[in-house]
């Protein structure tokens, strides 16, 4: 099993390298730093000097891959690829347009992001699985039928409307929670309640219905019939047999997102004014701050790869075929 995990970990390395190369190509080859400068400075009134200065300020004035003007190691290290792409591996993200250190920013913003994302994830998972099990248990009854209709209707609503509608109802009409904002410490609670509830509701439809399909598929398997033939109660069949097997496909989609919880939620953070990484990313996108977007792409991918690893490890816990196979 240890060999298995080591193997999976090693397998992650080429993927991380691939992502690094891909982001480099996307940010520096599709458009040259000159193009970016021209766009940032305004296409019409731009002078070559301004472009040069813009590039020099950000360290984009170096050659892309090979610096012929330098000797030895420096011919490789004094390049955009080394400075901007390879250093990502060392978590050296450079500075944002406002000249703040990105790594530092990320550290301080992780907390609020997690404070929102973790409860949404955990409570949401519990709610969705419970509903899905319920629908599977009452399959082919009206309860199940209307449950599915509800899920389909709920997944047909854009998450933006959940947020806007939620803010209107909870804050404006009922005055139950502040409409947006954030404070550290325990005060965060009152700001988080609404975003958490809304986050859970907006993921409900799709997930609950998907889990229901998974559980129903398991319930058609032969071993479920065996379990019934043993005289086990339907609840035992559901929880001991169906749930445990159904968790395997569920895990595939769930565990992989756990590390990316650090990234927070783009939309709700910006709507609710939570100073996490999600709103940081949105602001960077809107301000066209390439350094931040590039860093977030890399971190996001790295976290996702960690998620893939965790998924593999979690398989070993629920699926003996992986553990011993």
């Amino acid at each position: 099993m240890l060999a298995y995990i080591v193997r999976r970990t090693l397998y992650a390395i080429p993927i991380l390298v691939g992502i690094n190369l891909f982001t480099f190509a996307l940010f520096f080859l599709v458009n040259t730093p000159d193009d970016m400068a021209r766009m940032q400075l305004g296409v019409k009134r731009v002078t070559p000097e301004a472009i040069q200065k813009w590039k020099a300020d950000r360290g984009y004035d170096k050659p892309l891959l090979y610096n012929a003007g330098q000797d030895g190691v420096r011919s490789v290290s004094e390049t955009i690829f080394f400075e901007k792409s390879l250093k990502l591996f060392a978590f050296d993200f450079g500075r944002a347009e406002d000249n703040r250190d990105i790594a530092n920013e990320i550290r301080t913003r992780m907390g609020p992001s997690l404070a929102l994302a973790v409860p949404v994830f955990l409570v949401g998972l519990a709610v969705n699985i419970t509903f899905a099990l319920g629908m599977a248990f009452f399959r082919a009854t009206y309860l199940d039928f209307w449950g599915v209709i509800l899920c389909v209707a709920m997944m047909s609503i854009s998450s933006l409307f959940y947020i806007i509608g939620g803010q209107y109802l909870i804050s404006k009409l009922w005055h139950l929670a502040p409409i947006s904002g954030y404070e550290g410490g325990l005060d965060a609670l009152k700001f988080l309640v609404m975003p958490v509830i809304i986050g859970i509701i907006s993921s409900f439809g799709g997930s609950a219905r998907f889990y229901r399909t998974v559980f129903l598929e398991e319930m058609g398997k032969d071993y479920v019939r065996t379990a019934r033939a043993k005289g086990l109660a339907e609840s035992v069949v559901m929880f001991r047999h169906v749930l445990k097997n159904g968790l395997i496909p569920v895990l595939t989609g769930v565990v992989v997102v756990i590390p990316t919880l650090f990234l927070g939620s783009l939309i709700s953070e910006s709507f609710f004014g939570i100073p996490g990484l999600g709103s940081y990313t949105i602001d960077a996108i809107q301000a066209q701050d390439f350094a931040v977007v590039r860093s977030m792409v890399f971190i996001g991918s790295a976290l996702y790869i960690v998620g893939l690893l965790l998924t593999d490890i979690s398989y070993t816990m629920v699926d003996p075929r992986v553990r011993f196979g």
Binding site: Y223, R225, T226, A227, A229, K230, L232, K244, R321
Partner: peptide, 29 residues
């Protein structure tokens, strides 16, 4: 079921629960 009338099936590879030990599957009866 299982107490007075028990049943075994054709395909032993699918009739057993893949994620429970065989001991567990006997013990539950």
């Amino acid at each position: 079921r299982g107490r007075r009338v028990a049943m075994i099936f054709q395909e032993p590879s699918t009739a057993l629960n893949p994620v429970l030990t065989v001991g567990r599957q006997i013990a539950e009866v």
